[in-house]
Design a protein around this nucleic acid. Sequence first.
DNA 1: GTGAAAGCGCTAACAC
DNA 2: GTGTTAGCGCTTTCAC
Lengths: 357, 357
Amino acid sequence: MAQRKSGSTTLKQVAERAGVSMAAVSAVLNSKKSSIRISPATAELIQQAAKDLHYVPNGLARSLRTNRTNNIGLVFENFGGITEGQFYVELLDGVAQELFKNKYRLTILPEVDRVQPINSLGNGLLDGVIWCKLPQSPDVIDILQRCPIPFVALHARPTEAHEAAAYISADNYGGAKLAVQHLHELGHKRLLFILETAEVDVPDAQARLAGFLDACAELNIEVQDQDIRIWSHDLHETNTYFHSQPEHTAIITWNERTAGVLLEHAQSLNIQVPRDLSVISFDSTSFSEKTSPRLTCIYQPIREMATAAVRTLLAQINGETITQDFEYPTRLDLRDSTTEPPKNRDWSSILNAEKSS
Amino acid sequence: MAQRKSGSTTLKQVAERAGVSMAAVSAVLNSKKSSIRISPATAELIQQAAKDLHYVPNGLARSLRTNRTNNIGLVFENFGGITEGQFYVELLDGVAQELFKNKYRLTILPEVDRVQPINSLGNGLLDGVIWCKLPQSPDVIDILQRCPIPFVALHARPTEAHEAAAYISADNYGGAKLAVQHLHELGHKRLLFILETAEVDVPDAQARLAGFLDACAELNIEVQDQDIRIWSHDLHETNTYFHSQPEHTAIITWNERTAGVLLEHAQSLNIQVPRDLSVISFDSTSFSEKTSPRLTCIYQPIREMATAAVRTLLAQINGETITQDFEYPTRLDLRDSTTEPPKNRDWSSILNAEKSS
DNA sequence: GTGAAAGCGCTAACAC
DNA sequence: GTGTTAGCGCTTTCAC
């Protein structure tokens, strides 16, 4: 056994020292509208005793009694894998700040056990849960319906278990459309749409893909099979791609990191963005100001969404049953990585120049 | 009052349904070497009853009883302000992964109340604490000595309250020296050392500054007052600096974000890095591969340090009283942002070219 | 106004 | 081997 927090003083000891009852101590220290009233003199006495003894209330016991923990859980599936980039920093920070402001603590949950999900969610430790990028699989719907505590899905879209949770999402469908429209207005006719292997199943991906396809259909942009790709970005996909001398004049990427990798590769191959190739990404955090060229992006308000998720959750915890969904609008953040399509792009001379250099 | 997790089944109900005692249920479900032994038949019966009732143990009650929460706290002072960049992502992810592997949960703590710090640390909710960038102020030392739970300081150096905690740090002193040596070997004689306003008081900053000064002294590099600056990077410090036509031929920055901002500004002013100016930064995460030019860095093993912090803490929690400190070596990661000092740098022509463009 | 006592759900020591 | 019971530390109802 380790040296434990066993030595700590209890409420009982404070009561004894002050010569009053436990109830009196509890009432004074919680300073709530209690049924009992304490004279200022004894209140002062109690305060002093508590101070003398360095009394600190045990949160476990209090929570057990009150059924309140002031602690909410945040689920990141794949936390370890995809935390690269500004997206998760802003999301996490947004959630944390809003929580702290309201005197709540934040617990990060590892992947929720799909077999015994309730073990993490229903064990009394959490007042509520925010689940990022909630997948739409049947087992998750099952979890939702059996979840005994308030639940908010962030960056996810309503499922069949719609009434069991509130959903906070960005208009990814509309965002993808904006991207296509922007490229269409610039004159692009052949687009590449890239998804990320690790996140191909998240709700945002499906929405963006749908938006891409619909916008292309509306604007008479032809879409072939090879115009939609799923990359892991750890193989030589990019090199292979460029050396296949593709017809695409513009690429829509999954996120800024993905775009960053692409920009790097392009640069090393002597491909100039946006002159030879336009690139547009999702998210639009401070990262997109740091790439060269700066990234044109579809913006989604990551931080606001995080704040909204917390507010919705806390409202639910406080008994408001409105499980209103929110879909945040996206917009185009124009920077320097998109322009008109190249007139006479000659892949071989571009790639040859690279070899000779 | 909200709809609460009150409806959940208790161990008692399971016992009743299985027709056995509570003790039997507890023993079976915890499957520990208990003093009591259960026949396989009744064990099966109990398992079934628990399953039928969707029983999930209440963690609050269990922790209250066992004095164990399987939850550790992570303190980020300034969490909101300085979370930009890869440093915190790697740190956080490193801590989280190692914790999850050991069946611990992670709670993020907002700024610890300096007046009543024990309220967050001694309230029974946490088995231990990791405090990032622990400052060396007297009140913090006081907190340390009164902290009732195991404590590890990450990215911090031993204070007077040395025996009260374990310290995990990188050799920032040596790292700063490496940076100066590298620049010295390239021929630089006038160096600028930049610190960050928000973090000028963290232990790493002091160590780096000391390393910088000592290395310069050893290598006969002159250091004047204006060669050490504290920037907030939200003003026009950089512009003012460059337009003052400084003599420095190389800059050592606080972190990659800082360096990134600097690179951007330089580029917009037509200053070419590293031809006109060498830049070297601390940290060396994946970010430094994405800048243009790629950043030469002093590497510190952020993730390993996070892992070590968790391991040390868990060891302490399990009763090992060794509060061994670790100082991780740093190294130079050579990339493209440093080279020999410019021979005849003409600020006016560089900055004029910018105006005309 | 104040104090005694019940009990949140669980575990572990101790009788059977 | 199995069941009974005493609390962990707190809040809150109910008599005084």
